[in-house]
Amino acid sequence: MARDGEFTGPEEDIFLAALDGELNEDEQGRFERNLAEDAGFRERFERYRQTVELIRRLGPRPAPESLLPSVQRRITRRAVDSAGPVLRFPYELLVFVVILGSLFYIYFGMLPPAPTEVSKRAVPATVELELTSPLPAEIVARFELTDPGDSAGGARQYYGRMSRDRAAELFSAVTPFLKDKSPPTLPAANRLGILLTAPLP
């Protein structure tokens, strides 16, 4: 049936099947009879057939010659781009190394120098010795010992800071006054603090 110039219903199936060559023998017979007897049917089918033929004559449109080279160019560029991350400079790694290096510098670079480099300002190792009697004033003056006088503990204390060699010299000089009479073993430090304690007379 036709409605407002548009085919609907069974005619749709017949027209499609007729153009696709899918009508069986009976259907083909009925279709041809319809064409012969029904002018409206014939006109509608003819217009339908002409339209389809016109569209099919239009046919596929060949691609422009520029399409293939464009696709090839883009694929090549894409292949290069996709290989990019492997070839490009590893900026992320560089940033990581710089940050790590900075942290190492901050942590280790700011530590005090190694103990093998004892500076003159380093705190001296202190050697404490007990004397049998106060030292003569001459020794105190010669080795620049501080003599604070009587301490609260009822003893007299002498204190001095000097090099290891000078300390060895001091111990030789004070050996007669030492309680255990033998000079002490000096520590390895280059500068020493010497604390000598003598009982009050």
Binding site: G5, E6, F7, F15, L16, R47, Y48, Q50, T51
Partner: peptide
């Protein structure tokens, strides 16, 4: 079918 019919019109 409907496309062809509309196109015919």
């Amino acid at each position: 079918h409907r496309a062809r019919s509309q196109l015919a019109r």
